[in-house]
């Protein structure tokens, strides 16, 4: 491998935490979804690194599945974003607190 596996994992961890921070701290729904995307990509990095470390192609196959799933997920979430925007007129996540106790 070109770099130690640990370094790849560290990189993936960094990306993941950044995506997490974005999803947690931002109020705009779109930005939350973008945070999710970053996290998913971080996972993809880890998977590819693993595949390279153990010299098997299965990690990459899983990355493909990941991308397919992400597409599906994005499609529906963005459709819902449109729907919510149409219903409420806002995309601020804090405004959607109908489940509050």
């Amino acid at each position: 491998m070109i770099v130690p596996f640990a370094h790849v994992l560290l990189f993936a961890a960094l990306l993941f935490v950044m995506g997490l921070g974005c999803a947690l701290a931002r109020r705009n729904l779109i930005m939350i979804l973008i945070g999710v995307e970053i996290m998913l990509n971080a996972a993809a990095v880890a998977l590819v690194g693993g595949s390279a470390h153990w010299r098997q192609v299965d990690g990459q196959v899983f990355v493909v599945f990941l991308m397919a799933m992400t597409s599906a997920e994005v499609a529906i979430s963005l459709a819902m974003v449109v729907y919510l925007r149409r219903r409420r007129g806002t995309l601020e996540a804090d405004k959607f607190d109908g489940m509050h106790g």
């Binding site: 947690l24 959607f96 607190d97 106790g101």
Partner: peptide, 17 residues
């Protein structure tokens, strides 16, 4: 404890974290 159930997504994500 009721204060935890804000109904906001970010709260629940933070709980995950």
């Amino acid at each position: 404890l009721r204060l935890l159930t804000t109904g906001r997504v970010s709260t629940y994500l933070a709980a995950f974290l």
